[in-house]
Simulated scan of single mutants.
Amino acid sequence: MEHISGKEYGGERPLFASHDLYLENVTIHAGESALKECTNIEAVGCRFEGKYPFWHVDGFVVKNCLFTEGARAALWYSRNLEMTDTLVEAPKMFREMDGIRLERVRIPDAQETLWHCRNVELKNVEVAHADYLFMHSENIRIEDYRQQGNYSFQYCKNVEIRNAVIDSKDAFWNTENVTVYDSELEGEYLGWHSKNLRLVNCKISGTQPLCYAHNLILENCTMADDCDLAFEYSSVEASVKSPVRSVKNPRTGSITAESYGEIILDENIKAPADCKIKVWNE
């Protein structure tokens, strides 16, 4: 493996089609596609300032690096990435990728990040300004995670999340096969139009959660006082260890909670209209 240390590059494609390359304390200045069409790249302590540095790359390790704002859209159309201890200030990272592992990574401007990606693992990752995060991605495992940003995880499939704090309006819309354990989910309109969404030991807040959901499961969850008009037109099996402010027209299944502020079953309820709404010890 060729070792390059302490050098600076800029302009168009300075390291195009490189293979078996170890970069240490290297700076990529303004320009485009510094490491396009590469394989087996390791970058340690490097600084990326130019656009699109890693496109069409197969097999790369990024450790203790910085992607500045100018390094926008830095990792697209690539495979088999391992990134650790890195700060990503650049927006629109990770598109059309297969095989991503991020650990101890911070992304303070995560808007439109992680689109159309497959086989993704995140651990000890923190993201902010993350509107439209994880669009149309699948096979995702997340642990010890903090997120602020709306419209996240839309159209995702096969997701498992543990020990997370997710502040996101419209999270998990149109998802399929998502399970969330031991997490806080904050934001309006959670989980609409989802299929096989399962929440275990979660704290839920925000208006009108979990509507239009198919095969929704809640196990040992709590709901904040602002969770009104919940479960509209959903098929649901829910055990809620708190009061529920209001339930509106669940379609089928059962809901058990400590108490209900209001239960709305009106002429607009949809068939089979047989959801059992109960309290504990009843």
Rank of each mutant, 00 (worst) to 15 (best):
K169P: 00
L229Y: 14
Y181Q: 00
V247F: 03
V125H: 02
G206F: 04
V180N: 00
E188A: 11
E219D: 11
L216R: 03
P250W: 03
D144W: 11
T179E: 06
C221K: 02
N163V: 03
W192A: 01
R198Q: 14
L199E: 03
S152I: 07
Y233K: 10
V244T: 08
P243S: 15
V159A: 04
Y212Q: 11
V180C: 05
C202I: 01
W115Y: 13
A257Y: 05
V180Y: 02
L210Y: 06
T256Y: 03
Y189F: 11
A238E: 06
S242I: 07
K169I: 11
L190N: 01
C156Y: 02
L218Q: 04
L210K: 01
D225H: 15
V247T: 06
D225Q: 15
W192K: 04
Y155E: 10
P209D: 07
L216W: 05
C211E: 04
K241R: 14
R245K: 15
D182W: 05
S168N: 06
D228C: 12
V180F: 04
K195E: 14
D131G: 13
K203V: 09
F153E: 01
K203L: 08
E219T: 12
V159L: 09
Q147H: 15
A128W: 11
V178P: 01
N220W: 07
E186Q: 09
P209A: 10
K248Q: 14
V244Y: 05
I204P: 00
F231C: 07
V178A: 04
M135A: 13
Y181G: 00
W115L: 12
N249K: 06
L199D: 02
H193E: 12
I204S: 00
T252N: 14
L197R: 01
N249G: 06
K195Q: 14
S239D: 13
L185E: 00
E176S: 12
Y151M: 11
Q208R: 14
P250I: 06
N177T: 03
T222L: 04
E184N: 13
D170M: 04
A213S: 15
R162F: 12
N158V: 06
W173S: 09
C117Y: 03
N201V: 02
C117N: 07
I161N: 04
S242R: 08
V120C: 07
S239K: 13
A257P: 09
C202M: 02
E126W: 10
N201M: 05
E188W: 10
D228Y: 12
L218G: 01
E186W: 06
V125L: 08
E176P: 00
S234R: 00
N150L: 01
G206T: 06
C117H: 02
C117S: 07
S137N: 07
S235P: 06
K169H: 14
P209F: 05
E232I: 05
N201K: 11
A213P: 03
I142R: 02
R245Q: 15
S194C: 12
N124D: 15
T222V: 13
N124E: 14
S239H: 11
K123R: 15
D228H: 12
L122C: 09
G191T: 00
N163Q: 11
A230C: 15
